[in-house]
Amino acid sequence: MRYLFFIAAVLAAGFLISSPYKLQLLTFIGINTLLALGLNMLMGYAGQISLGHAAFYGLGAYTSGILTAHYHWSPWLGLAAAVVLAVAAAFFIALPLLQLSGFYLGMGTLGFGMIMFVVFRQMSLTGGDSGLVGIPGLSIGPLSLDSPRNYLFFVWAVAIISIFLCERLINSRIGRALRAIHDSERAASSMGIDTGKLKVHIFVLSAMLAAVAGFLYAHLVSFISPSSFDFLVSVRMVTMVVIGGMASVWGSLLGAAVLTILPESLTVFSEYEMIVYGLVLIVIMILLPQGLFRGVLDIYERAGSKPGNASSRCQG
């Protein structure tokens, strides 16, 4: 039901909006939703932070970009290669990194993100600082996705399917095990959960979603450069998850929307843009520490119940 409504909203937006700029903005929200969703699976549910997720985003974008622009592969083969490479990289990185926890895991993933950023900048294949040009658009058989509207529908189809699958995963034995690791790793392993293995698996899934987002991004903008995958992008992904709401699939969507639209709509503040942006984030976190999704729901529920009945608030 929720999905029907959601699909209807995307279709309506796609057909009613004609400005290419707005269509592209909505497309970016879809791509960012994939990023936030993947990171939320890792951070919100399994409780493992990653400050280097832009690396997988970049890996997806560059792999498919290089293979299609330099070697004239079909983009779909490029996508397959991007996913395989991101999965392999995530697997080998996760084995040592996920031995860490808390701040140390943050530092470790940060280091990985830095290394990949340097790789994107220094390799001749990636075009270095000047970027990679000539990445072709996508088409499904005879249907070209070149028009902003078609690309919007395609990106959102991928996003909706991903949300659907992630929601199923969360409401399963695996999802419960992930949340168990978040709550108490010791207790989780006393339930027979192979916490080490599960953390690696969810890290890989999360990297896979980021790589798919990277693929979608590269073939949308046709030109990519390292600055799209630097440390600040990793931080922005974390912010999307936190703002939208940790451990909330739909919160990822909301977080991605806010962090995509906010910088765009703040350009009216010209040079004060970043200050206002930072302030908005601070205010959201102070007023709605559980994230926008949960927070707005709480306000809605509180408004519906009698003033004296504030029990849901205390449990916060």
């Binding site: 168990a180 207790a187 451990a247």
Partner: peptide, 23 residues
């Protein structure tokens, strides 16, 4: 050491991790 984010029932469901197979 209960799983604090979960309901009473869910805690017991996590307990059945080794008794179930779904991946």
């Amino acid at each position: 050491e209960l799983f604090g984010s979960m309901s009473v029932l869910e805690n017991v469901l996590v307990g059945q991790h080794v008794k179930t197979r779904c991946g």
